[in-house]
Design a protein around this nucleic acid. Structure first.
Lengths: 234, 234
DNA sequence: TTGAGGTAAGCCGCATGCAGCATCGGAACC
DNA sequence: GGTTCCGATGCTGCATGCGGCTTACCTCAA
């Protein structure tokens, strides 16, 4: 078939996927499904079905689910299945309070100088939000966009450990916000997001990393307050 | 044998250990061994040997090792074994910088009012340090004491998520300090620890939670600086 | 003596069979 | 009709055999 010179693929000539790479791939797929509420809280994940879908045995699937378990996204119950967690109000508040602090820390501890590529990426994300505003509500697309913004924000610190923890906390509680979207005006939701991106970009262009942290912090606060409006009775 | 009234064990009448409990037990044993340098950096852990020691198959041992892997305490390499990680200098600094911030956060976010039991516990710990100062250097006992102090400090916040993260970061990097102990005067090491406990107790008695955070922060700074003395050449 | 190549042993990653647990529905009894 | 018990079903947890990877040692040749 192939080989025999010709060099059709200069780099990565048919390299098979590593174990670790496959694990990471499956992990991220399932995590995203949880984060965009494709697997909503209470959903029961079946090891057998997942192993069929990803064409591996139950063993590696179990590894992935165990990791998601440690990260608080699912809980596994013997004889039943692996269940996507509900985030209780107290935990949600704890996480957001902490994320607000960490947003400041990020700009204090080891901020990175904003690169042109990064600015470009933020502009691109803002454009995507604008596109989304024109169409009808699409919560999944919105969620994916939030994930992408989050991904970029992780790049703003050189402190890898801090970035890791931010990542953990984001995926652990961000989906609560998604669950509240139906109660909120669609355009308002997107305006909040676009504002955050715009403000962040502005601060980045000025090299004002402290400002970037404040924007993030303020945004988390807005989300916390907005959700709080619906929790007064609880 | 038993049963037939008599009630020899009023509570927990011969209840077998749950899966989760066994997992937690094995996990904590291995984590402690790593944290007190019984398994020093570079040590190769063998799934087969561990499964013999704990009298289970390789499967649950693998679960525990995978968790330790996610937490950054070990890395598993195919065909070789599970290796206790070395903490590189940069990561160490990142973690301590973060822990210093979190020490403040702990007293700001959700401090708990100090209870008499807690004060008692701190007094007890201080007594233990005094005992340790009288004897010859015993790094393992010192390490266990540090773990115990850490455990108590986790009780100082009601923010469970914050406590979790503190725990993760502590076990991930605290053993670096232990590795430097041979370079430092034994009595100085214990004095630092006793001072921290004493200062913390004093602040707790005054209900000054902010002070507690500052004491913790200052102590982390001392450790960071002390280690820094030996890293100038690196 | 030194270097390289090959071989053998040991370990982890995966697949799979089996046992224990949880749940649901039907049947039997009150 | 309502309730309780029990059996069937399906799922996760565990044990284990096998394949692939890594490494160390031994051999042989330069």
């Amino acid at each position: 078939m192939n080989s025999e010179a010709n060099a059709p693929t200069p780099i990565e000539p048919m390299r098979r996927e590593t174990q670790a790479e496959r694990f990471e791939r499956i992990y991220k797929v399932i995590r995203e499904r949880i984060s965009v509420l494709e697997y909503g809280p209470g959903t029961v994940l079946n090891e057998g079905l997942l192993s069929e879908e990803f064409d591996v045995s139950r063993t590696p699937i179990r590894s992935v689910l165990q990791r998601l378990n440690y990260e608080g996204l699912v809980t596994t119950r013997n004889g039943v299945g692996t269940i996507v967690t509900e985030v209780d109000v107290k935990t949600f508040k704890d996480i957001y309070a902490l994320r607000m602090r960490l947003a400041e820390d990020m700009s204090v501890l080891s901020p990175v100088a904003p690169s042109p590529q990064m600015l470009n990426e933020f502009h691109r994300l803002r454009e995507k939000v604008r596109k989304l505003r024109e169409g009808p509500p699409d919560h999944k697309a919105y969620a994916r966009l939030c994930n992408a913004v989050h991904e970029q924000q992780l790049e703003l610190t050189e402190n890898k450990v801090l970035a890791e923890i931010n990542d953990l906390l984001y995926y652990r509680a961000a989906r609560v916000w998604l669950a509240f979207l139906p109660n909120i005006e669609w355009d308002e939701v997107l305006e909040i997001l676009e504002n955050e991106i715009a403000d962040t970009t502005r601060a980045l262009e000025l090299g004002d990393m402290h400002g970037v942290g404040n924007v993030r912090r303020q945004n988390l606060f807005i989300i916390l307050k907005t959700i709080g409006r619906f929790l007064v009775g609880v």
